[in-house]
Design a protein around this nucleic acid. Structure first.
Lengths: 150, 150
DNA sequence: CAATCAATGATGAAAATTGACCAGAAAGAC
DNA sequence: GTCTTTCTGGTCAATTTTCATCATTGATTG
């Protein structure tokens, strides 16, 4: 585990919001020389603190107007049932996130689809076809007042 | 709304995974000249299809070992109650995402905290203190077999 | 078939990246 | 206290990238 000082936190805070900021601008923002800044960023990347960089795409602007979170409960909690479910989720392009959680359900999914019919296809053809699944609850996203996903 | 062709989709697919790739490398990847590639990227940014770029930070490596999703139900569904709740979420640094959803709850939150005590503080002092909140259910994230958040 | 419009590729100047090298501060050993 | 050792920052220059401009290609329309 690497030690993260105040300057590192400053850098991370900036990069979390502006992942494509130039090293020069970043250096100026955190009041450091470009080379020192670069060294820190590289160290943070090497340590895995920065796992990568992503462009944030707007689903609506890409014709993916339908976003929902689903809670999924499994019939059995065997390792093989979980593995099979996770494999199906990995293969499903509509599934952007699949979190294994504690509580009265096993999984929480984020699903993005073009529209309601497309979502229905996923719901019935993919999820509904899985023998491990026992309960599905859909929470359609109306809006996201805050979204700092990183 | 801008039209997005196959090349654009290629570009987006690459940028979604490697947000900091150089324009030169991106151009090579999608088999286009650098200038044409840059123009497309700029158009996508201007159209809002690319909403921004983010560094993906590893919560665990930053001492934020505790990640949970919470479903939150409100007592009343007035506009003012929602606004007050959303404002509180915007102010809470532990809250990384706040989605307004349909279903038997109003909100779905993603919360990241250093550990269980830190989470408890958020749960009781912040969420518990809000008069609008009626129900809270916590789903602690054990693992994320898939996470393509963008 | 000519004209027009859109998109591409080429070019080059300006800017950014990135690593080598050096200086100074902090920590530890004696 | 002094001498190392280590760590972090700054400077600078070579390399690479960005990005605006311009000519060309190709498709579409009248």
């Amino acid at each position: 585990m690497m030690k993260i000082d105040q300057k590192d936190r400053q850098i991370l805070r900036v990069l979390a919001r502006e992942g494509r900021i130039s090293n020069l601008a970043l250096a100026e923002r955190v009041a450091l020389s470009p080379s020192a800044t670069l060294r820190r960023v590289q160290a943070l990347e090497a340590a895995g603190v920065i796992a990568g960089y992503r462009a944030m795409l707007d689903p609506a602007k890409m014709g993916q107007g339908f976003v929902a979170y689903l809670s999924v409960g499994l019939k059995t909690h065997t390792k093989s049932a979980q593995a099979a479910f996770e494999q199906a989720m990995a293969a499903a392009s509509e599934v952007r996130e699949c979190h294994n959680v504690t509580g009265n359900v096993e999984y929480l999914l984020r699903v993005e689809a073009a529209d309601l019919p497309a979502y229905k296809r996923f719901h019935t053809d993919i999820l509904g076809a899985l023998p491990q699944v026992s309960t599905i609850t859909t929470y359609v996203v109306i809006g996201s007042p805050k979204d700092e996903r990183k």
